[in-house]
Design a protein around this nucleic acid. Structure first.
Lengths: 207, 207
DNA sequence: CCATTACGCTACGACTCGTAGCGAAAGCGA
DNA sequence: TCGCTTTCGCTACGAGTCGTAGCGTAATGG
């Protein structure tokens, strides 16, 4: 295969510093201008590169913003806080911290909106952003099962379905609170939400 | 006050049919083109009006799409299904039915994204779309309290906080499932979600 | 030294934006 | 019937963005 990686390809290699500069400039432009007023020409000027360089690396505005926003989720991690309730609060606050940044607020929702008419873009978002969030949820559940807080689920398809449900509930609630209701996702709210969800999970298990 | 309503104002009145034609044309354009490729000139042509007429009535693309999408939520209602679980499933499926329409998918998320940088737009969305959804949740809870399925909440501020929480959970989960995960919100999913939420609500009440 | 690729720069046609100006149409009151 | 007022359709406009093409130059590997 050797599918044309940067390794053994003749010619001048692509500048790695340009990539980081472009993505940083994209985030800066998102903060100052927002999605709708962001232009690729402006991003190129901010990054100190030519506009044509942008079009050589990204098909368009959508894909560029996805990559720029995806880097914000690099800091996602889930420290073990000892209990399922604390872990839920932890992942909620992790989401909230990223969604508090203006470049995430304006960029993320816009590309999700565009992805409703572009399956390739949806796939890109899923791989670089959504799946990384989902991993936190899966890890939190496996920890809870290891602690005995949640019963093990033998059926893998049933397990996947409940995981999808839990993920949509957590991510959806946080996003809706932060962007639609536009109210703060603080520790109080995270505590209330974690209590609600935890009760739902454990009660359904014992019932 | 008599704040310049259409009643006693001299001159030619605004065409009421033009309003409905413009909003319908906006929805058609959303279906065919999506948010990003939708232009006001195209909408005007579809509606059979002049472009200047659009700008006389709406400040811009954002506000026009909000009004066009808001009409989709006119059909929202919550029939009494006899139990809290059934009512939750009902409201979830109501949301899902609207979000299944492509003009809602592409339009709603886009204006929400824009609202992160435009407080006036956020207010407009809240009044014409979000609050109408919230009413269903509030009505479902009051019914459940009347049936005795949920305990009455004496503290009004505490009651409002839990209502906000429940609303963000329901609306957020449905939106996330439909638009981000891009998987169907069918009766199976609605049933699983309602079970999870119902357990969370009743368990927290008894605890 | 040469082939190959990336880069910066300029220029371009096509398109959209939001506004201004004009004459005609549709109401209302005298 | 005659003004007065506001809306409407239409045209035209400068400004801005888009995405691409062309060119000469810079950076790597054989």
């Amino acid at each position: 295969m050797q599918s044309r990686t940067a390794a053994s390809r003749p010619g001048r290699p692509r500048s790695a510093t340009a990539d980081t500069a472009i993505l940083a400039a994209t985030r800066d432009a998102l903060v100052e201008l927002g999605w709708s007023k962001l232009t690729l020409g402006d991003v190129a000027t901010r990054a100190g590169v030519a506009k044509t360089t942008l079009y050589r690396r990204w098909p368009g505005k959508n894909e560029l913003v996805v990559d720029a926003v995806a880097e914000l989720f690099d800091e996602l991690e889930l420290p073990d806080r000892g209990s399922l309730a604390a872990d839920i609060e932890g992942v909620v606050l992790q989401f909230a911290t990223i969604l508090a940044r203006p470049e995430a607020r304006s960029g993320l929702m816009a590309v999700v909106a565009e992805s409703t008419r572009d399956d390739a873009l949806r796939q890109r978002i899923r791989e670089s952003i959504v799946d990384r969030q989902k991993c936190l949820v899966l890890e939190g559940r496996s920890r809870a099962q290891a602690r005995g807080e949640l019963p093990p689920e033998p059926d893998p398809s049933e397990s996947a379905r409940t995981a999808d449900l839990i993920f949509d509930v957590i991510a959806g609630a946080v996003v809706h609170r932060a962007l639609v209701s536009a109210e703060p996702v603080d520790t109080d709210w995270a505590h209330s939400f974690a209590g609600l969800l935890l009760n739902g999970l454990t009660a359904s298990a014992t019932a």
